[in-house]
């Protein structure tokens, strides 16, 4: 292990500093961050239709998983999926065009923010629904593409859905290569986890004999090192629930944050963005400005495109 991977203690907070990221990881993290900030800005200006759910504060989850997943793996995302998509494809133009209903949209502007399908990536807007589908896909992969897995992103709130348990049962029973990534940001829309979940995610996974791995770190390198051997076991048919204790910086969608100020502050204190800027200022600033400028450019270019075209009967 190199020196940069060993986190040093931050004297101010007493918690470990973040290890130095690869340029690729930092660029991707910043791309997602500025993409999401841009969306909220566009909504604020009335330039987007409908709603969106940003992953501000949670960007590091799909970035950490990026190198652990391969092109043969199937990824299922959810309503808060921009980071998942960008970590997979890096395609800010196609995603923004999808959200803005412009030419070049990934799904013609039909699916919008939360219904995207591209190659082996698919997101849906109904909580828990994708787990049984992912079980079916994992069954297929196990038989035709050994070593590939199906990865499903869900949240803490998703555990209220029965579909989760039906699918976990199948995954354990059929020894499916299914990786369930739980982004436990402590709040389901406006309801704190403590007010909607009895017991724990770990306990629920254990009930099905499904492995559980708790990730409290926000350090991409550290998370990867911890997950790597476990993901390898998933590929051999040992399903895993990887639970990330994470923090949603922004509102559930837009302008609907009813959390007390101290909760919002606590989330902000955990933000990798500010932490990394502090721990690695030179590295951070070398990439932050360009990422912001890149997203600005994407937004200007995509906004100027003509509307996407689609025929309902096609």
């Amino acid at each position: 292990m190199t020196e940069t991977l060993v986190p040093a203690l931050d004297p101010a907070t007493g918690r470990p500093g973040l290890s130095r990221l690869s340029d690729d990881d930092l660029e991707l993290l910043l791309l997602i961050r500025h993409f999401e900030l841009k969306l909220l800005q566009l909504y604020g200006r009335g330039e987007l239709n409908g709603t969106t759910h940003t992953c501000l504060g949670q960007e590091y989850v799909p970035v950490a998983l990026r190198t652990l997943l391969g092109p043969a793996d199937f990824v299922f995302s959810n309503h808060r999926g921009h980071g998942h998509y960008l970590a997979r494809f890096g395609d800010a133009h196609g995603l923004l065009a999808e959200i803005m209903g412009r030419e070049g949209a990934v799904c013609g502007g039909v699916g919008g923010s939360q219904h995207i399908h591209r190659d082996r990536y698919l997101s849906t807007g109904v909580q828990g629904e994708s787990l049984p589908v992912a079980a079916g896909v994992a069954l297929h992969l196990r038989r035709t593409d050994p070593g590939a897995l199906a990865c499903v992103y869900i949240g803490d709130g998703t555990w209220g859905e029965g579909a989760v348990y039906e699918a976990l049962n199948l995954a354990a029973l059929w020894r499916l290569p299914l990786l369930v990534v739980v982004e436990n940001n402590g709040i389901a829309q406006s309801t704190p986890t403590a007010a909607q979940m009895a017991g724990t995610v770990a306990g629920r996974a254990a009930a099905f004999g499904v492995d559980h791995h708790l990730v409290v770190s926000g350090d991409v390198n550290e998370i990867r090192a911890g997950l790597e051997p476990l993901v390898a076991r998933v590929r051999e048919g040992r399903p895993l629930a990887a639970e990330f204790v994470t923090h949603r910086l922004g509102p559930h969608s837009k302008g609907d944050d009813t959390r007390p100020p101290e909760a919002v502050r606590a989330a902000a204190e955990n933000d990798w963005y500010a932490r990394y800027a502090q721990d690695h200022p030179e590295h951070f600033h070398r990439f932050d400005g360009p990422a912001r400028a890149l997203v600005e450019g994407v937004a200007d270019e995509v906004a100027a495109r003509p509307p996407s075209r689609w025929s309902p009967c096609a």
Binding site: L131, P132, V133, A135, G136, A163, E166
Partner: peptide, 25 residues
């Protein structure tokens, strides 16, 4: 290999069928 008995989980078994269809089966 291709006839699969499932638990009493109509939602999940329909989802599994959809997943199989999604991957070309």
């Amino acid at each position: 290999d291709r006839v699969i008995t499932t638990p009493i989980s109509e939602g999940a078994l329909t989802g599994v069928a959809a997943g199989l269809a999604l991957t070309g089966n």
